[in-house]
Design a protein around this nucleic acid. Structure first.
Lengths: 213, 213
DNA sequence: TCATTTAAGGTACGGTACGTACCGTACCGT
DNA sequence: ACGGTACGGTACGTACCGTACCTTAAATGA
């Protein structure tokens, strides 16, 4: 009966014995991991649902039972396999360090995901309800904007800045610049670039009237 | 649904008489216009080569003879149907006006094209040779960076700024911010926003050491 | 323990879009 | 008048999508 099953390729850490059958979270994780690996190897646009299923040693049906389309599947895989950056205020006691820390935190996950995937998701979610998850929310609701606001509030208590005078666009400026470069460039964003954004652009703007003189 | 096998729906300006047969540029323009209209109505992701062909009252073959895939076709349609902004230095005799003018010039075409199309093209050109046409070139080659440099050079001659002290990232800052907002937001970029970018962010940075004191 | 329910394995299908091949024919230049 | 070009039109093979359907293993629980 079970003699010579057709395939025994195993890319993930899963082992499939003859009569075994994975269920629930086990299978779900296998699929998400397969999607993550497939994404890394194939890229977003050429990734197919079937390829993910095959890599997870299951079939499309099991995938579609959980996620209705490629975009949702990939989002789930990203959530599972990229570290969600902490957006708590780093609170190093220093505005510059706080901002640099926050930026470093968000750069890593974004780089792991990659520009192509982000663009692909933006296209597929166009008109969708999740559209607003990718296209940025109003700055007042953007978690990163809130994180920056918290950082600046601390800085204000130390007298480093006057938060009330800063337009929202200024608050998210360093974050926006980082996101922009990650989206539109392929060259990796260097530490020097981040430092330049903070030291030459952001800090002079928010500190201008005070520290300066 | 509307039966449209071989009758005379005319969305574009073309009229097809019984025995006539368009060739060369006439047909090419008809296809590009059809693509442009189709893009506006359907959006990038749901646009199909066949729909373009039908709208142009021809068939896929004629389309594929000219452009090997959707992305290249759309790029051609965009080039034909969106005004290529002049990147000559406006030279209003005033840095602020120069920058505002340049920004207004590039905003219009980008808004006409739309974020979804740009994202779609970025995905499809991923790994392609045209990739570097969308993903930004090194700033030193970016036409918009060059335009900004020219503007700033004029300003330097008037003593408004000291160009040599400005890092490249600073030169493209207003342009980058505009591009970023157009890419990641759906709400239209208002004039006020542009003015804020220039007056509250860009000008204070480039003028800081001089005008200020 | 055994019947019932759940969900995985597996196959097959209809549907859409891609890109190509082929053919007949109108148009164009000479 | 003639021959090359390329348009109009159709049909095809491929790829992928998303779903239907059926079988079967595993979980459930009476």
């Amino acid at each position: 009966m079970a003699e010579q099953s057709h395939n025994r390729k195993k890319t993930s850490e899963e082992q499939q014995t003859a009569g075994s059958r994975r269920r629930g979270d086990v299978l779900e994780n296998a699929i998400l991991t397969a999607a993550w690996e497939e994404l890394a190897e194939t890229g977003y646009s050429r990734l197919t649902m079937e390829a993910v299923a095959v890599r997870a040693q299951t079939n499309k049906t099991a995938v579609y039972r959980r996620w209705p389309n490629k975009a949702k599947l990939i989002v789930a895989a990203l959530i599972k396999h990229t570290p969600t950056p902490s957006l708590e205020a780093p609170d190093t006691g220093n505005l510059r360090e706080d901002v640099l820390t926050l930026l470093e935190r968000i750069i890593k996950p974004l780089q792991m995901i990659g520009a192509e995937t982000i663009h692909g998701l933006m296209v597929e979610f166009h008109g969708d309800e999740l559209h607003s998850k990718l296209t940025l929310p109003p700055r007042s609701e953007d978690p990163l904007a809130i994180a920056m606001t918290n950082i600046l509030r601390s800085a204000q208590q130390r007298g480093e800045v006057i938060l009330d005078e800063l337009p929202e666009r200024m608050i998210t400026l360093p974050v926006d610049l980082v996101r922009f470069e990650l989206l539109t460039t392929h060259v990796p964003l260097t530490d020097d670039a981040v430092i330049e954004i903070v030291d030459k652009i952001f800090l002079p703007l928010v500190q201008k009237p005070h520290k300066q003189e």
